[in-house]
């Protein structure tokens, strides 16, 4: 009499279809197929977007903007007055930088950025948002207890340092200009850009090191 082992059958079935993508992957594949058929997207643009924003841009553009602001007071004034226009000057205009506000750290004030609703982020200049930025824990806690959250990231602020929490929206996103580290007077813009960390432009890093990123 033939035996029937459900576990074994399941294993064989899974093995036979092991190259079958996961359920969400199939749903995305279906969406892309339908949207391409309708002419609403094209596959090349999707692939290019992933390549550019996930791999190429990273936070490099933002770091260059900050380094220029450190070395060019007139540019810094324009950046603080109209962030979108200033990054546009550098050729960094793009999706999610259309309405950009730059906020500057000083010796007695610190800025930190969040999107309490979802995960709005200036990815055109900072690349993809880090994973912690998308968590409910960060989105809810940084508003209520910014000093405690910053301490988790290693940013210890004295009581007399003011903390400003900026809540991003689809229409308005933020870039933190960290303080320029001491002892960097002779450095070029490119050298300075290497000192700027992604987290410092979100506000979860403060004292930049002069020895490299």
């Amino acid at each position: 009499m033939p035996s029937f082992d459900p576990k074994k059958i399941t294993k064989i079935h899974q093995h036979l279809h092991s190259h079958l993508p996961s359920d969400p992957a199939l749903r995305v594949k279906a969406l892309e197929t339908i949207l391409v058929e309708k002419g609403l997207v094209n596959s090349e643009n999707i692939d290019r977007w992933v390549e550019v924003y996930a791999d190429d841009i990273g936070p490099k553009r933002g770091a260059h903007v900050v380094a220029r602001a450190w070395t060019d007071p007139a540019f810094k004034a324009r950046l603080l007055a109209d962030g979108s226009k200033a990054v546009g000057e550098m050729g960094y205009a793009g999706p999610a930088s259309g309405h950009l506000k730059a906020v500057e750290n000083t010796a007695d004030s610190h800025n930190v950025v969040v999107c309490t609703l979802c995960s709005c982020y200036p990815f055109a200049i900072l690349g993809m948002a880090p994973n912690w930025y998308k968590t409910a824990a960060y989105r809810s806690r940084v508003v209520r207890e910014p000093r405690a959250v910053l301490a988790e990231f290693g940013v210890e602020l004295s009581e007399d340092t003011a903390v400003h929490v900026w809540d991003s929206t689809a229409e308005l996103r933020y870039l933190v200009i960290p303080e320029r580290p001491a002892g960097t007077d002779g450095m070029t813009v490119d050298e300075l850009a290497k000192l700027v960390t992604r987290n410092s432009m979100i506000g979860t890093d403060r004292d930049l090191k002069t020895g490299g990123v």
Partner: peptide, 11 residues
């Protein structure tokens, strides 16, 4: 697929 979801949405 996670990257593709965001790519489709942003496009």
């Amino acid at each position: 697929w996670q990257a593709q979801v965001l790519a489709i949405a942003q496009n």
